[in-house]
Design a protein around this nucleic acid. Structure first.
Lengths: 143, 143
DNA sequence: GACATATACTTGACTTATCAATGATTATTC
DNA sequence: GAATAATCATTGATAAGTCAAGTATATGTC
């Protein structure tokens, strides 16, 4: 008889959690951006000089290089982000936060924080229960 | 100065983890199924009578109803799953595990378990560190 | 210093999922 | 019990991301 191991159980819960989360985060649409756009803005805002190589963004965000190209395209068009070149290596292209982008990020941050706290209430974190329990609980309670 | 709260940090990590996981799980493609197909088979296999209503599947898996329709379509064509009706309520339609579906599930289970253990090594679970640490660690280490 | 290999990014074709609208059935309310 | 509202599922149009192939540049080797 085949049973399910614990890691697999976790991953199955994760899948659902993530699906629900990214849909909740469409609340950011008020600011004209989606979850991944927000992530991009956040990463750039933290990066030195407000810029990162596209490959780095891909790696940090969990998308492929082509996914990044397609994600950044509209952000460049709306002027949240701009392109930069590397003097030493002509292959690389930077994504750079614009002033407009920074503004949008700062406007969206409170919404994003509120949504997050709604999904993962602070009390869960304070208790710091074992991961397994938390994820399973989330999987069961999340809407 | 705007800082990031802990829940938001977690969710940003989760997003990446999930993106990576579902790509890793395409290793199940050897069995001719994807991550969500596997999830469906798993849920049906556990359900009494090997069947579930389509809305229930949607809810459990974190997809919309239309997502389920489109996910099940090819699975019905390849005969992993079949349709059932409800005698009392003509609106509902069941997804039911076929013999072939059960076989594929059992074949895929070991692969799925192996992939999961690879992503979340057992030692992490044994230590049961606070969620935050685990997720952040994962977000940093996952490939 | 030419040739093979590797890296960074983009593009075309495709997959997967969403949303909004629709059809069909059931439940509620007056 | 007719009218209204709610629920289940599917469909057309579209968005977001993948993969494989292609272009351009860098690096390593002989």
């Amino acid at each position: 008889m085949s049973t399910i191991n614990q890691p697999l159980k976790l991953l199955m819960n994760l899948a659902k959690i993530q699906a629900v989360i990214s849909r909740k985060f469409d609340g950011l649409a008020v600011h004209g951006i989606g979850f991944n756009d927000f992530l991009i803005l956040h990463l750039l805002q933290q990066a030195p000089g407000g810029q990162l190589r596209r490959t780095e963004l891909a790696e940090k965000i969990g998308l492929t290089a082509s996914g990044i190209t397609r994600l950044l395209l509209p952000m460049e068009k709306t002027g949240l982000v701009t392109r930069g070149a590397n003097e030493r290596d002509a292959r690389v292209s930077y994504a750079k936060l614009t002033h407009a982008g920074k503004t949008i990020y700062e406007e969206a941050l409170p919404s994003a924080s509120a949504i997050s706290e709604d999904i993962i209430p602070d009390e869960y974190l304070k208790k710091s229960p074992p991961v397994a329990d938390l994820l399973i609980m989330l999987g069961g309670n999340i809407r």
